[in-house]
Computed example of a mutant assay.
Amino acid sequence: MPADIEDFDRVLTECVTIVSRVVPDSPMVSVTLCARTGLRTVACSHAKAELFDELQSAAGQGPVLDAIGHGIAVTADDLTADSRWRRFTADTTEVRSLYSEPLEWEGSSFGAITLYSGDAGGFADETRVAVRVTADHIVLLYRTALDAARMREIAAQLKEALNTRAIIDQALGIIMAQRRCTSHQAFEILRNVSQVKNVKLYQVAATIVETVSGEPPQRPRFEEPPQRTADPKK
């Protein structure tokens, strides 16, 4: 899960709040994602839903873990008569029925959306269909947010590459003037110095520019392109 996705958690919270309100009996809803340290509840309609997720993570077993691990929906109509997750059910008596739908992308599960209820009897087919549709929307949100984060990272890398390239070009110009050589020969000189001193190429270039000019090289400023706005006439 990318750490710089700012609005992802907020949108998910809105999703689970809507689900909790529109499905019958207003169950507790949570969205859980896989993290390096275990499960991470990124959105929930009730604080207890997050607690139930944490209990499963601590116990190392539970319907959410099964849904994510096997990539199939997990349901329980009455946990008091269910022996599949004894370590989890032993720590809570407030949940009687639940339904956990995995979140799948590119052939693997990366999380789950789960309904918790204090009443036995499970959830109606219509409710489970609604949860599956919501899961699809969450996957789409995740993919969109991840793509946006990757684009921001690529843009930052491109800016850095352009900045360092400008400094290298300044250094090449200085070497060409001093050595009366071609740009290719100047680059070979710069690269050899970089290898001998075991210093990055642009750092050697920056030192050359600063030595000649008496001040650190000025990086070019790249302005963000203006954002497009929708034409109100259309």
Rank of each mutant, 00 (worst) to 15 (best):
Asp4Ser: 09
Asp9Pro: 00
Arg10Glu: 11
Leu12Ile: 06
Glu14Pro: 00
Glu14Asp: 11
Arg21Pro: 05
Pro24Glu: 02
Met28Val: 00
Val29Gly: 02
Leu33Glu: 06
Leu33Pro: 01
Cys34Gln: 14
Gly38Glu: 09
Leu39Ala: 12
Leu39Pro: 04
Arg40Lys: 13
Leu51Lys: 14
Leu55Val: 15
Pro63Asp: 07
Pro63Trp: 11
Val64Trp: 04
Asp66Asn: 09
Ala67Cys: 07
Gly71Met: 08
Val74Pro: 02
Asp78Arg: 09
Leu79Tyr: 10
Arg84Asn: 10
Thr89Cys: 10
Thr93Ala: 15
Glu94Gln: 12
Tyr99Val: 04
Glu101Arg: 00
Leu103Tyr: 00
Phe110Gln: 03
Ala112Gly: 01
Ile113Ser: 05
Tyr116Cys: 07
Ser117Asp: 10
Ser117Tyr: 07
Asp125Trp: 12
Ala130Leu: 12
Tyr142Asp: 01
Tyr142Asn: 03
Arg143Phe: 03
Thr144Tyr: 12
Leu146Val: 09
Glu153Phe: 08
Ala155Ser: 09
Ala161Asn: 11
Thr164Gln: 15
Ala171Phe: 01
Ala171Ile: 01
Ile174Glu: 07
Ile175Arg: 04
Arg179Tyr: 09
Arg179Trp: 13
Arg179Cys: 09
Arg179Ala: 12
Cys181His: 06
His184Leu: 09
Gln185Leu: 10
Leu201Glu: 05
Tyr202Phe: 15
Gln203His: 10
Val204Trp: 01
Thr207Trp: 02
Thr207Asp: 08
Ile208Gly: 00
Glu210Asp: 09
Ser213Lys: 13
Gly214Tyr: 07
Pro216Leu: 08
Gln218Leu: 15
Arg219Val: 13
Glu223Trp: 04
Glu224Pro: 00
Lys234Ala: 14
Lys234Asn: 13
